[in-house]
């Protein structure tokens, strides 16, 4: 009776919005981040729908129409050094470039999180062994490590993915470890233990629930780096092999024409720049939107 009265004065019962609803509401208010999100979504849609959107066959060249400048009738963005349509190649290139940017990060996210969470939760000598091993990888500059691994494994998409994954595991593991260590000593973990939760339950519920957000945001910021590294590998001839359209590789093959058609040569680079900066801005927006308690 009394309770009902109280509810009446408080007005209708509205559910308090969940965490992610709040994050999304805050994220939507950030115009820069929203714009970045739209750019990325547009690129993803274009990549998926490439066969329907591309005006020409990206593999079909013709020596007669080599290196036409942007604005040529029939070839809006011109043609490359083998006379293939630039626009179509850029559209198809989005597929491989995105794939090379996102996949290694996903693999690294899984492997690195497991290593970091185990090291952080168990602690002791296991932490020392795992994290010092990770530190060994940290000693190499990431570009050098990726190049060295790809060089040793040989060129190709799979080897490129493997080497990029290896490059991204250490930073993710380190972030996961430090967040886990800080979560592990918090009171609510002890409270969970006091209410009878087993170590596995605590890792699954308390640790993952608190750790996944920060790691996820961090991994998103790595996508931009991954794309640039993948393009770099292709540029050096260690990643995607011709004639596949990939932005980094296109940059490489077009470099010979830099004096005759500078604008044309800059196009794949521009795409890499736009995509990676969009991922960066998106991550920044997401990070501040998730920082609700600050």
């Amino acid at each position: 009776m009394l309770l009902a009265d109280k509810q009446a004065t408080l007005g209708p019962i509205t559910r308090s919005p969940g965490y992610w609803t709040t994050v999304w509401r805050r994220f939507r208010r950030d115009p820069v981040a929203m714009f970045a999100l739209l750019v990325i979504l547009a690129i993803i849609v274009v990549a998926i729908l490439a066969p329907y959107i591309a005006p020409q066959d990206p593999y079909k060249g013709m020596s007669l129409r080599r290196l036409k400048p942007p604005g040529t009738p029939g070839f809006i963005l011109g043609t490359d050094e083998l006379g293939r349509d630039m626009l179509s190649r850029l559209i198809y290139g989005a597929r491989l470039s995105l794939f090379m940017g996102v996949t290694p990060v996903i693999f690294a996210l899984v492997i690195g999180s497991v290593i970091g969470i185990v090291a952080g939760y168990v602690g002791g000598w296991l932490n020392t062994v795992l994290m010092r091993t990770i530190d060994v990888f940290f000693a190499f500059p990431s570009v050098l490590l990726a190049i060295a691994l790809s060089g040793a494994l040989g060129a190709g998409i799979t080897n490129g993915l493997v080497s990029l994954t290896v490059v991204f595991v250490p930073p993710i593991a380190r972030v996961a470890e430090s967040v886990t260590t800080s979560v592990r000593t918090r009171d609510f973990v002890e409270a969970a233990r006091a209410s009878g939760a087993s170590a596995l339950t605590i890792i699954r519920v308390q640790v993952l629930g608190n750790v996944l957000g920060p790691i996820f945001v961090y991994a998103m910021s790595l996508i931009a780096v991954s794309m640039i590294l993948a393009s770099g590998l292709s540029f050096l001839g260690l990643g995607v092999k011709p004639p596949e359209p990939e932005w980094g590789l296109m940059l490489n093959t077009l470099r010979t024409a830099i004096y005759t058609q500078p604008l044309l040569c800059a196009l794949p680079g521009l795409m890499i720049f736009v995509t990676s900066i969009s991922f960066n801005l998106l991550t920044d927006g997401l990070r501040s939107a998730m920082d609700i308690k600050a």
Partner: peptide
């Protein structure tokens, strides 16, 4: 079972 001193810290913030 146990009640803790600081309920803010003893409850998981993400659930």
């Amino acid at each position: 079972s146990m009640i803790f001193q600081e309920p803010m810290l003893a409850m998981d913030p993400v659930y």
